[in-house]
Design a binder for these strands. Sequence first.
DNA 1: CTTTAGCACTCGGGGAAAACGAGTGCTAAC
DNA 2: GTTAGCACTCGTTTTCCCCGAGTGCTAAAG
Lengths: 356, 356
Amino acid sequence: MNDTGQELDMELTDRKKKILKVVIEDYIRTAEPVGSKAIAAQLGKVSSATIRNELADLVEMGLLEQPHTSAGRIPSPKGYRLYVNELMERQRLSLDETERINQSLQLKMEELDRVISQAGRAVSSFINYPTYMSISGKKTLSARRFDLLPVDERSCIVVMMMSDNRVKSQLLRLQLRVDLDQLPTLVTLLNTHFVNISPDEMNLRLMDVAEQIPPQLFLLLSQTVSYASDALAESSQREIVTAGAKELLKLPEYRDADKAHQLMSFLTDSKENLPVPDEGPMKILIGPENVSDALKNTSVVVASYDIGDDMRGLIGVVGPTRMDYATVAARLSGFAEGMTRLFGKQELPPKEEAEK
Amino acid sequence: MNDTGQELDMELTDRKKKILKVVIEDYIRTAEPVGSKAIAAQLGKVSSATIRNELADLVEMGLLEQPHTSAGRIPSPKGYRLYVNELMERQRLSLDETERINQSLQLKMEELDRVISQAGRAVSSFINYPTYMSISGKKTLSARRFDLLPVDERSCIVVMMMSDNRVKSQLLRLQLRVDLDQLPTLVTLLNTHFVNISPDEMNLRLMDVAEQIPPQLFLLLSQTVSYASDALAESSQREIVTAGAKELLKLPEYRDADKAHQLMSFLTDSKENLPVPDEGPMKILIGPENVSDALKNTSVVVASYDIGDDMRGLIGVVGPTRMDYATVAARLSGFAEGMTRLFGKQELPPKEEAEK
DNA sequence: CTTTAGCACTCGGGGAAAACGAGTGCTAAC
DNA sequence: GTTAGCACTCGTTTTCCCCGAGTGCTAAAG
């Protein structure tokens, strides 16, 4: 009796593959176990009895499962994996679809965050599954250049260009009146001692220069530096935004409010442990292949795209293991390409400064 | 037979009020129709039969309803309204709660949008209902001041201070090489002709000055103006962000996936027709009092707070008519006060420039 | 050795019927 | 005006049974 584990010796004939494919695609469409008769009808030529024999083999190989005796078969995670790797035919996007993607990427390139979250909503409503998006850079962000613009004697504008060429600015209210003539000195100081270093270092260095300048100037300096380090820290922290969690409720597997709630909570709360593609443009994780327990019964398709030359963006799609992998993969990579194009077009091509 | 409409002549005795209050609070807690026996137990002194007589009266007055003959009573919208107006005792926040509110408002005052959406999440997870937040200003936004900072010969930074004292900036890539000496001219031009007017006017005026300046300067000017008008338009458009839709799923009235999905869709999609408090700090809308059809079966509690001296922020809480009005109201106004404090502390107190 | 028809068997889903029980309205006595 | 008593209502829960899709096995046919 070698019921232990899966049979490796059985051959996966061509016909078995065909059958597997039919089962999976049927199940993806209907969410109902697929019976031998339906398969026979779709395949033609062979009778349901033959199919049944093959099905039994496929179950033994661990590619299919049967919920109970006398029900049809459903794919196992292993089955999906095989399907995704070998059987699934790469879909081409229709013109309509391409059109729709481009349409939803007609975004004004204002704030990055906003672009991201808008894109997230678009993806989700186009793919009909919940999505998550985030961006992250490899290098840690630093300031590249400062400016102070006088407004009146009690306020001025601080402008900081960051190492990724984004610019941040804010109005500063001054506790003390500052001589406007002093501003250039301060700017020079900032551009000498506070550029190309991490936010933490900035705060440290503040102490060093404390005694070199007059107190009321120092106050302004410290306001500026504290603004700058906060802004840098915030910009470099990778925030994950999710969208379209409600799509779950349309799926039969999440009609149960508790299940839906559980997954939604995980999606909106977990700011960390959502899958990222280690490399390559796209990654598909099926059921138990996920590390997070909360995702053991779900599949994730995640793609990445480039922003500038340091940052990478990330779009993930979450759904039941019975996910329409072919369509999702096609549309998602369409989106990812769109995003690359979007950012490539308007963002920071050149770069010349050296680092410390 | 005067079954038509509600009986206005019946008197709402003190005991009736007490009973109504018990019914409502019980129902809010349990989501189950409340029976005469339970009420009697809680009131003491009187028997369930007496209560039954009173209940019949309350039903006739339109303050209670009964789902079917042999079930307990549940409050009608009218009943809730009476409860909210007269019967409900204003809750005081516990120390714990106050603490928790302050805790979650320990936000770095970076970008307004981000603060808002973080606060939204906090409110939602504290109150356990979905929330929506938005901000809006009465006056239309315009630019108050421009600056251009040279970076290299192909790029410069545009800085714009807006009429609400917020500052926006971005790096501009120039199609044509521009003589740096020309920048001050351009800045003067901007500060003369493009301040204190609406984004639309800005684009119009661009045409007017087209012939007064050399072409390559005009290119830069038009890039700047287009950035500015976009940024202004975007900042003044009132965006609504929602949070915590998942909380719905915990409520018995939304265990039905379709109902939940419907309301969630409304919340996330409708960028317009969510209730706003016409004036006063807080407003409670019960069931059919809502204008949107989608909200006819839900209640909304909405509060507002001040940002600077022109803008107003808005927090709304959405839930079933069986909402814990007392708690929600207390916590929500706690939050609103917190927000006012938060913005009052760090934002734009003075202002002196005159408008056009 | 593979395919197919035939057949008994399994088991979950669906629906009717029954049992249950919380709660009511009414009546009559206090 | 209040209360005990009681028959009645009606939604919920439980039980039970039937149906049928789908199976595995066997034996015959290719």
